[in-house]
Simulated scan of single mutants.
Amino acid sequence: MAHVLVVNCGSSSLKFAIMDGTENPPLLEGIAERLGSEHSLITFKHAGTKVEQALHEHDHRGAVTAIKNWIDQHRELNIEIVGIGHRVVHGGEMFSQSVLIDEDVLSGIEECSQFAPLHNPAHVKGIKETQALFGELPNVAVFDTAFHQTLAADQYLYPIPMRLYREHHFRKYGFHGTSYRFIAQKLASLAPDFGQQNTLVAHLGNGASVCAIQSGKSVDTSMGITPLEGLMMGTRSGSLDPSLLAFISDAENITMKEALDILNKESGLKGISEISNDCRSIEEAQAAGDDRAELALNMFASKAAKHLASVATNLSRVDHLVFTGGIGENSPIIRGKICDRLRMMGIQLDQHANQMCPRGEISKISKQASLSNVWVIPTNEELLIAQDTLALIDIHRN
């Protein structure tokens, strides 16, 4: 059977999975961590077992080499890698869909690095290493931003001088697009009239955003030119008065970049709770009576509900509300707090269904009388990357 190696390169990590493009569990998955350090290691998960090993080369090449060696050492599994699919964070205005990677595409990804200076250079590094080690196998880029290229100008433009857009392409791009596209496809299989319906999706995890989808296309989303805009997140502040950057810089006697790092890495759930960026830890603290934890959860839910209501202004009605992502799929507390704040939209949550929602399964958690269907749908970005890769390889061959 044909398999795809799905790769997600970060600056110091490389996540990977081997998939067949169906909903079967990955044949292999894992992560290489601490790349660039002499303590780098790689973890392989296969058939219920987990094995860690040190990397001989402490960089992305070392990680890709270790993955290839694992495949070569397990010939009895009949793994036939036909292509490699890469998650790419930022595709700018150049890429509105997944593409086979050639030199022009690589140059385009590098050009978009101005908007994703930590991520895109790492993606390019991962692509070049897989090209070098896997020979002539086709590589495919799947962009987080591509799904939102259907936004109208009145939604993606910032109210700043137009020359800044014309000369520098400063605009809203949005993220989590692969997740939203997966959810749209999954919901289309559940709702026969989805092609004519309107949906709100809340992708809630350490990174969090919302999206309004009309007839399967994105019409608004909360993240902007970077993932910092929009909702309160695990460590990100989300949207706030831009002047706050200058106030923090002056008050703390730090640079503007250092102030921006505070908004990206020390804020959100972590900053308000002063406990953790992990929602599970905060919920445990809340259950034990911690007021800071309660405040953090209420703020998180409030910001999410406000942004859902905001993007909903681009829809004539809301037929579906979907929760996905690590928090969206697994926190009945957060789902309940958000839906409670959306009662003015006629959303009514079935409290029992919300509490008993099985982990990892699709569940409808709204009451019969609710004006919108409320769903929990687990996302699977890696599967969509694998499917895109197989589809583009097939088109190229024909």
Rank of each mutant, 00 (worst) to 15 (best):
G21P: 01
D154S: 15
L228A: 09
I225A: 13
E129A: 11
I395K: 09
A63G: 02
V376K: 01
G325R: 03
C279W: 10
D350S: 03
K128V: 05
M223Y: 07
V64M: 00
V105I: 09
P26Y: 10
P117E: 06
H148S: 05
E103C: 03
E381Q: 06
Y180L: 02
L384N: 00
T379R: 00
R34K: 15
E80V: 10
D291K: 06
G325D: 08
A305T: 08
H168E: 12
L371F: 09
A54S: 01
A202T: 04
T389W: 08
D59Y: 03
V142M: 07
F300K: 07
C9W: 09
A47S: 05
D59Q: 02
A47H: 04
I393S: 02
I31T: 13
I71L: 08
A63S: 04
Q286M: 14
S107H: 09
Q214H: 11
L27T: 06
I42T: 00
M345W: 10
I81A: 05
H203M: 03
I183G: 00
H56D: 02
T150V: 11
I84N: 04
V318C: 03
L41T: 13
S40D: 07
Y165E: 11
K50V: 11
I334H: 08
S239C: 14
D388K: 10
A141L: 08
A153Y: 09
R171L: 09
E33K: 10
L392E: 07
N380I: 07
V51K: 04
D59F: 05
Y180K: 04
N373W: 09
G328C: 14
Y158N: 12
L384K: 00
A246K: 13
S366W: 00
V105H: 01
H320C: 07
I183L: 00
Y156C: 10
G10W: 10
R34H: 14
K172P: 05
I31G: 07
L157A: 15
G36V: 08
V4D: 08
S276T: 06
L190K: 06
M233S: 14
K367D: 13
H46Q: 07
R341L: 14
E283W: 02
S239A: 15
E283D: 00
G83W: 11
T324R: 02
L349R: 04
E294G: 11
I67W: 03
K270V: 06
S366T: 02
I67K: 03
R397L: 09
H148E: 03
G126I: 01
G360E: 04
A132T: 10
I272W: 09
I31N: 14
S237W: 12
P138R: 12
L371K: 13
I333Q: 09
G224Y: 12
I333V: 15
S267A: 13
R61K: 02
S107K: 10
I248G: 05
S267I: 11
Q53K: 00
V140M: 06
N8C: 12
Y158Q: 14
I327Y: 11
K364Q: 15
A153W: 09
V82M: 01
Q214Y: 07
M299C: 14
K15S: 15
E33A: 12
I67H: 04
S237D: 15
I282D: 01
T199L: 03
R181H: 02
K45Q: 05
